Deep mutational scan, measured.
Amino acid sequence: MMAYMNPGPHYSVNALALSGPSVDLMHQAVPYPSAPRKQRRERTTFTRSQLEELEALFAKTQYPDVYAREEVALKINLPESRVQVWFKNRRAKCRQQRQQQKQQQQPPGGQAKARPAKRKAGTSPRPSTDVCPDPLGISDSYSPPLPGPSGSPTTAVATVSIWSPASESPLPEAQRAGLVASGPSLTSAPYAMTYAPASAFCSSPSAYGSPSSYFSGLDPYLSPMVPQLGGPALSPLSGPSVGPSLAQSPTSLSGQSYGAYSPVDSLEFKDPTGTWKFTYNPMDPLDYKDQSAWKFQIL
C-alpha cells in the first residue's frame, strides 16, 4: 500500500520538471525561470610600474599592434585584453584634452560664430520673369535699313540677281523696263511654242516681248482663266512685280493683265486636223540634229 502513496517519478516537459499528477507549474501565473544575472567585471587597478610601461608604449604609438600589447601584458602581468581596453580609454582621454585646449585658446566670443544676415524675399530687387527677354536684342539694338529709291541700282540687283547668272552684270533701268511683257505680243502666236536658250531668258530683255519668248507657250493655258476669275487675268510678269519692288498687295496686282481676252486664246483648236509644230532653235543647249523629232501629229 505504501508504494502507491509515494509520488511517481519526475517528468520533464519543455525542460520543466513536473512532479506526478501536479500540474501547477503549467499555470499561467507561474513564470518561467529567468537567466542568472551576469556579474559585473571588477575594475582593474594599475600600479605605478604598470602605468609607466603603458605610458611609455603610448608615447611611441597610440595604436599598438597585438604583438606589442602581448609583450607589455607579459611585463606588467596583466591579460592582453586589459591592455587593449586601457589604450582605448587613453585615446579617448587624449582627444578630450585636445578639445579642452582648443576651447581655452579661443576667445569668449569666438564660440558663437556670427551668422550672415538672411536676406528677406521682398527687399532684394530681383529681375521680373513675367516678360520673356528678347534673345536677339531686336527691340533695343536692331534698326531696319532704310528703303532705297525705287530706281536705285541696288534694288535692281536684289531683284534680278536671283534669276540671272553670276557672270552677267546687273540690268540697267532701261533693260528692266523691257522685262514687262506686252499683251499683244504674248497673244499673237498662241499655238507656236519656241524653246529659246537659257541665257536669253536671263539677259535678253527682248525675249519677253517677242513671239518667240519663253513664256509665249504658256499663254494658251493662262488666258482661259479670265472668265472664271470674273475680271482681268493676273500676270506674273506684269508691271512692277518684276520691277523695283516685289512687295505689292494682291489688290494692286488684280488690275494688271496680259491684255484683252480673245477667243483665239482658248485651248480649242480651230482646225482639228492641224498639227502643233515646235520651232527648233539652233541655240538650244539640247543638241538634236534631227528636226523631225520636234513634229508630232495630233490624233
Results as ranks from 00 to 15, higher is better:
M2H: 00
V131F: 03
W163C: 01
A260Q: 04
T61D: 05
K277N: 00
K289N: 04
W294E: 00
H10E: 00
G209V: 08
L229K: 03
Q291C: 13
P125A: 08
P172H: 11
A15V: 13
F278Y: 01
G217D: 01
V157K: 07
L54V: 13
T159L: 12
S245G: 08
V226D: 02
A174S: 08
P205R: 11
T155S: 01
L237K: 03
T61G: 08
A29N: 06
N281R: 15
V72N: 15
W163E: 01
I298N: 00
D134K: 10
Q84H: 09
P135L: 07
D65S: 08
P263H: 10
S188F: 11
Q111E: 08
A35N: 06
Y208P: 01
K75H: 07
S188G: 06
M2A: 00
R48G: 12
T194C: 11
G231L: 15
S152Y: 07
G259W: 13
L299Q: 00
Y11V: 03
T61V: 06
S204V: 09
P33L: 05
K277F: 12
P125Y: 07
S292H: 09
S254F: 12
C132I: 09
S199F: 11
T155N: 01
Q175Y: 12
W86K: 14
V13W: 11
S216L: 14
E71R: 10
A35T: 03
A15K: 03
S266A: 08
Q105E: 05
P127S: 08
G209R: 09
R115S: 01
P220S: 07
P205V: 09
D290I: 15
L18C: 01
A68W: 12
T45G: 15
P145Y: 05
K60Q: 05
I76F: 13
P108L: 03
F215A: 01
T61K: 14
W86I: 15
D287C: 12
P127V: 09
Y191P: 00
L74T: 08
K88Q: 12
D290R: 11
P79F: 13
S182M: 15
G230Q: 02
I298V: 02
E268Q: 04
S169N: 02
L299K: 00
P125D: 08
P250Y: 14
Q297K: 05
P7K: 06
A200S: 11
G239Y: 12
S141R: 14
L136T: 05
R90Q: 13
P263C: 11
G239L: 10
G274N: 01
P36L: 08
H27N: 04
Q291W: 11
S210L: 12
R95A: 13
R41T: 13
F46H: 12
T194G: 01
L186A: 01
S49D: 08
Q84E: 15
E55N: 11
Y288V: 05
P31Y: 11
P170D: 04
I298R: 00
W86D: 14
S249H: 07
P64W: 14
Q105A: 07
G8F: 13
Y4D: 00
Y214M: 02
P36I: 08
D219F: 15
V66F: 12
C202R: 11
L25Y: 04
V242Q: 06
S199P: 05
C202Q: 02
Q84Y: 04
T275M: 04
P184Y: 10
P31Q: 08
K277P: 00
L146Q: 05
P147D: 06
P220L: 11
V30F: 09
S245I: 14
V23S: 03
T123L: 06
Y214N: 01
Q106I: 01
P153T: 09
A198Q: 01
G122T: 03
K102H: 01
L18S: 01
Q103H: 08
G151V: 02
L136A: 05
P227M: 13
S169R: 05
P144D: 01
G239H: 12
P211Y: 10
S19Y: 12
Y195P: 00
L222D: 00
T47W: 11
A114F: 04
S257P: 03
K295R: 09
V160K: 07
P232D: 03
S164E: 01
S203M: 10
A192L: 13
R43K: 11
S199Q: 05
A196P: 03
S241D: 02
Y195C: 03
D284H: 13
S128Y: 03
P227I: 11
G137M: 10
G151F: 08
T129Y: 07
W294R: 00
L246N: 01
P232M: 11
P285N: 01
A59F: 08
R69V: 14
S34L: 09
S143K: 06
Y258K: 03
W163D: 00
Q248C: 11
E80F: 09
V131H: 05
P211I: 12
L57A: 05
T61S: 08
Q106E: 04
V264P: 02
T275G: 02
E80K: 11
V242H: 06
K75T: 12
M225K: 03
Q97N: 08
D219C: 15
V13L: 08
M283S: 03
L18Y: 07
F46R: 13
S12T: 15
D65M: 13
Q248N: 02
I298D: 00
S204N: 03
P107G: 08
V72F: 12
A35P: 05
A92Y: 09
A181R: 11
S81P: 05
A114K: 10
N6M: 13
S188P: 02
P79I: 15
D284S: 13
S262G: 10
P205K: 09
A56Q: 05
